[in-house]
Design a protein around this nucleic acid. Structure first.
Lengths: 251, 251
DNA sequence: TAAATAGTGTCTCTCAGACAATATCTT
DNA sequence: AAGATATTGTCTGAGAGACACTATTTA
C-alpha cells in the first residue's frame, strides 16, 4: 500500500524540494502579435541572429521575471518591440512543452496572441533593431520558422479567427472608429474568405455592438461613396470586446 | 540605439544562461478529471494532508519529468490516480503563472482537462490512498479549494461544455455504446440545463455522428420503453471525437 | 390501468446566404 | 457620364425551440 503516511507524491516532493538538486526549467512567454494592413494579415517576427535556428524567423519571446506572470511578460514584450503604448491587450494561447523544443535546455513556452491596431492604414512602428519586422502571414504558410513557432502562429490565427465569430475583437485591428468595409476587410483577412458586403453589414449592425459616430469617411481611398463611421458600443470593460449576438459565423 | 550587435535579449540571455545562477521555476501538470454519474457532474479531487492549504480539496497534480511533456505528465497522473487503463485522453486547458500562486516557491502549472468514462453507471475506481475521491462539482461551487484550483475547475468545465457543442466529446463520459437518453443526461449535467428529449434526439441524430448497434437497452432502470443503443460513428482518429454538423448549440 | 420513458410530427420564428436594386461619390 | 463603393431590400432554405401525440414497457 503506497503512501501510508497520507502524504502524496507532490507534497513530499515540494517539502523536500531543493532548487540546486534539479535541472531547472526555463519559462518564456512567446507572442504572436497580429495586425492587418490593406486586407492582409501580418505577424511580428524577429530574424534570429544566432544559434539555434540562425537566420530563421521566430516570434518575439522573453523569460518571465521573478514577480511577473506570463501575461505580464507577454505585454512587456509587445511594448518593447513596438511603438504601441501600454495598452496592448494579449491573451494566453497555449503552452508548448515538448522536451526537445529548444536544443539548448528545457524551455517551457507560454504562448500568447496579441492584436496591434492599424492607424492611418499603416502597420505600427517596430523597434529599429534590424531584426524585428512585420511579416505577411501568407508568406509564412509552410515556411520554416525557428523552434515550434510555425505551429504557435497557426494556433494563434485560428484562435483569433474563432474569437471573431462571437466577439468584436476584430475592432482591435482598427483605430477607435472605422467604417464597416474596414472591419469587413479584417474579417476577410483573418478568415481568408470573401464576405458579401450587404449581408455583412446587416449582420454586424444587427448584433448591436456598434454605434454611429455621425461622421463619414472614404476608406477605399479612391472612388465610391464615403461610408458612415462607427465605433464599438462601450460595454463595461474596455479591454473585453463586446459580445456579438447573434454571432457572425464562419461558413 | 540598443542591440548594436544585432543580438536580441533572449538570445544573449540563453547563451549566457547558467542554471545555478537563477531561481528555478517548477513546472507542474494539474488535472481536472471529470465524470458523470446519474446526471451529476463529478471531478477527481485530493484532500491535502499537509501545508499549504492543509485539509482543503485540490486537483491531482505532479511535476513534469525530464523527458516528459505536460500532456504526458497529465496522462500519467490520470492513470496513477484511477483504475482506468492507458487510454485516458486529456487536453491542455490553460497555464496558471501568478507569481504567488504557491506560497513556497515559483510554480507554473499547466492545467489539463480529462474525461473519465462511466461504466455500468458507476464512477471509475480511484486509488485507495485515503485522499483521492470523486467530488460533486455542484458541491464545489463557491467552495474554498487549494491554490487556484477552484478557478482551474471552473475553466475546465466551461471548456468541456463548449467543446460539446461542436464535437461528440460527450460520448467520452459513457461506455462504447449508449442510449440517447444517457448522452442527453451528459449534456444536461455539464451544461446545467434541461433538454427536450424530442429535440435533442432529432438534432444529435441529424449530425450523423452516431450509428445504431441494433440492440436495445433500458437505461432508466425502472419503467419506460427500452431505447435503441448507439455508438459513435468511427472517424479516422479514435481519440478525436466526431464533429457535430450541424452543431448542438447551448441556449 | 397508470405512469414513465422512447420516439415522431408539426408549427413558428430567426437567421444565413444569394443576389437584385438603389444611392452616393470620385475621376 | 462612368465606375466604384455604400446601403437597403427580397427571397429561400435550414435549423432551433415549443409542444402535441403515439408507442412501448413496467409497477
Amino acid at each position: 500500500m503506497p503512501d501510508v503516511s497520507g502524504t502524496g507524491p507532490e507534497e513530499s516532493f515540494l517539502a523536500a524540494y531543493n532548487p540546486a538538486d534539479h535541472p531547472p526549467f526555463a519559462v518564456t512567454a512567446d507572442l504572436a502579435l497580429l495586425a492587418v494592413e490593406r486586407g492582409e494579415l501580418f505577424v511580428l517576427t524577429r530574424r534570429r541572429a544566432s544559434h539555434p535556428f540562425e537566420g530563421r524567423l521566430g516570434l518575439p519571446s522573453g523569460f518571465l521575471g521573478e514577480t511577473e506572470s506570463a501575461g505580464e511578460a507577454a505585454e512587456r514584450i509587445a511594448r518593447e518591440k513596438t511603438g504601441l503604448g501600454t495598452s496592448v491587450a494579449v491573451e494566453q494561447l497555449k503552452t508548448y512543452t515538448a522536451p526537445d523544443r529548444d536544443p539548448r535546455m528545457r524551455v517551457v513556452s507560454v504562448a500568447h496572441v496579441g492584436i496591434a491596431a492599424t492607424m492611418n492604414a499603416r502597420l505600427p512602428k517596430v523597434v529599429a533593431d534590424g531584426q524585428t519586422q512585420w511579416t505577411r502571414c501568407a508568406d509564412l504558410k509552410g515556411a520554416e520558422m525557428a523552434f515550434d513557432h510555425a505551429e504557435i502562429l497557426e494556433d494563434a490565427i485560428e484562435r483569433i479567427a474563432s474569437r471573431m465569430e462571437f466577439t468584436l475583437v476584430a475592432a482591435r485591428f482598427l483605430p477607435e472608429a472605422f467604417t464597416l468595409s474596414q472591419i469587413r476587410m479584417v474579417y476577410a483577412a483573418v478568415w481568408g474568405v470573401d464576405l458579401d458586403p450587404g449581408n455583412f453589414q446587416r449582420k454586424i449592425l444587427a448584433s448591436g455592438t456598434l454605434e454611429e459616430t455621425g461622421e463619414r469617411y472614404l476608406a477605399s481611398g479612391g472612388r465610391g461613396a464615403p461610408a458612415k463611421v462607427y465605433r464599438p458600443r462601450v460595454t463595461g470593460d474596455p479591454l473585453r470586446p463586446a459580445f456579438l449576438s447573434p454571432p457572425l459565423r464562419r461558413a
